[in-house]
Design a protein around this nucleic acid. Structure first.
Lengths: 119, 119
DNA sequence: ATGCGTTATTCCCGGTCAAACATAACGACA
DNA sequence: TGTCGTTATGTTTGACCGGGAATAACGCAT
């Protein structure tokens, strides 16, 4: 296969991994990063802003995750001291940790296959 | 993590895998299937038709692969007995075989991770 | 010569999806 | 009571991508 590629160093295996339910996607790399930002910033709007994503889209992603999961991953509140906010539930934090680990194993897989490609 | 999901049987890990160059995607599952159909049918237009894909798109994919690879994966001819046709080069057949194998290993990975999810 | 089926290429159009915009509700605080 | 920042949600706009139509070239066959 190596004969096929012009520059072995620049051609590599890549991919995307996600967890899906019967209807929609449940958790992927984009949603993971959103959850991480919410965890860090305590707000959907700040997370969206940091990711250069529209608030509406961020909210829709959160809604999709919360409605699909048995237990909501993100807890939100309107009004209050800082106008409201959002934080990860225990299930949310667990999902983040587990998907991070899954993502690491996937990266290892991809790198191994890239190495094999240049074998 | 299992606590998060409503119905363990329906939630699973899934993903996409591809080989990419410095600019564009080079080879993925869609392109693989296109190559397989060309291999089988001897024509880009018939392959496109069989895949319910427009000829234009099929041709663009073939062009993308051929221009990125050192050696073309698909050889075409205009005119002739049957009006022309297309067939895989040795490099093309090799790429198909190798990516099929890669895809199998990826499927095994995905299934293993799905099993782990329901652990 | 003419026809045929394919490759090769350009142009236009419509569907789709996210961005942008708009607005309401909420609750603490001054 | 009014302000503020956030959640929550509907509506419109716009860009992008693929589909489809149109056209030319090609070369064998009749």
């Amino acid at each position: 296969m190596k004969d096929v590629f012009p520059d072995p160093a620049t051609f590599r295996v890549n991919g995307r991994l996600w967890i899906e339910g019967p209807a929609d996607r449940f958790l992927g790399i984009g949603r993971l990063e959103l959850l991480q930002h919410i965890q860090l910033l305590g707000s959907i709007s700040k997370a969206a802003q940091a990711m250069n994503m529209s608030y509406k889209r961020a909210w829709e992603l959160v809604s999709s995750m919360n409605t699909q999961a048995r237990v909501p991953l993100v807890s939100t509140q309107t009004g209050g001291q800082r106008g409201g906010g959002a934080h990860l539930t225990d299930a949310g934090a667990q999902a983040v940790a587990d998907f991070e680990a899954l993502q690491l194993r996937f990266q290892a897989f991809v790198e191994a296959e890239t190495a094999r490609l240049h074998g």
